[in-house]
Every structure is written in C-alpha cells, then in structure tokens.
C-alpha cells in the first residue's frame, strides 16, 4: 500500500541553513533517513516546504469567484512542513517508518493513499 506521511512541526524552531554551522549535523540524519527509505523500497516521493509565511491559499466557495488570500489554510501551533509518500506493507510498517523520522518534536499524520494517477 501507499501512505502519505504529513509532517507537522513548529516552524518557528529554526533549522540551520546550508553553510551555517551545525548544518551537517542537522542534514545528516535526514539524508540517512531518505537513503533508508530508498534502500528499503519504500520511497515514492517526498518534499519539505518553505514556511507558512510563503503560503497563499485559494478559497473556493460554490457560486462565488475564487478568493486568493495570504497565509496557510489553518493557523495552528504546528504547521504542515513537508511530506513523504511511501510504499509500505501495512499501517504498522508505515507507523514504524514514520517513527524513525529525525524530527525532535511534531506530529506525523499517516493516511493511506486512495488514488494516485501516476502510480505504476
């Protein structure tokens, strides 16, 4: 099965940028995690997003023109920061993989994929 892991973290906790001290230490575990997903045949896709300050939301209400507004869909304590789309045997395996993510604090929502047009 395929599962989407939606990563919600507090985006005010700053990660070091490329070239800054501590970047290697921060990025190393993520590279290792990605490699583990690839080697295990779990990797489908994944991305991290820029912070919600860059977000724009299109709100559609039936019968009215679309409204384009500044900001994320929801203002929350934790923000949607990235995702993995993985292939796993079952939910238990997906949970195990999600638990290995090198995030100090946050929530990972795991949802089975219903349909993906580009699925092989």
């Amino acid at each position: 099965m395929e599962y989407m892991i939606l990563i919600n973290i507090d985006e005010t906790v700053q990660a070091p940028e490329y070239g800054e001290p501590g970047f290697e230490e921060f990025m190393g575990p993520w590279m290792a995690y990605n490699q583990k997903l690839i080697d295990g045949g779990h990797w489908v896709s994944g991305a991290s997003l820029q912070p919600t300050t860059t977000a724009t939301t299109v709100r559609r209400t039936a019968g009215t023109p679309d409204a384009v507004v500044d900001g994320p869909y929801l203002e929350t304590k934790e923000q949607f920061g990235g995702y993995y789309l993985i292939s796993a045997e079952n939910l238990d395996e997906a949970i195990e993989l999600a638990k290995q993510m090198p995030v100090l604090a946050g929530s990972f929502e795991i949802r089975p994929v219903a349909f993906r047009p580009d699925a092989r």
């Binding site: 599962y3 079952n90 939910l91 238990d92 195990e96 949802r111």
Partner: peptide
C-alpha cells in the same frame, strides 16, 4: 481494511 491495519504479531 482501508488503512491497511495488519493481522500480524507486531515487533
């Protein structure tokens, strides 16, 4: 069924 919760002995 839909989320693929397995009938297995967990680790």
């Amino acid at each position: 069924r839909d989320a693929g919760i397995p009938l297995s002995i967990p680790a």
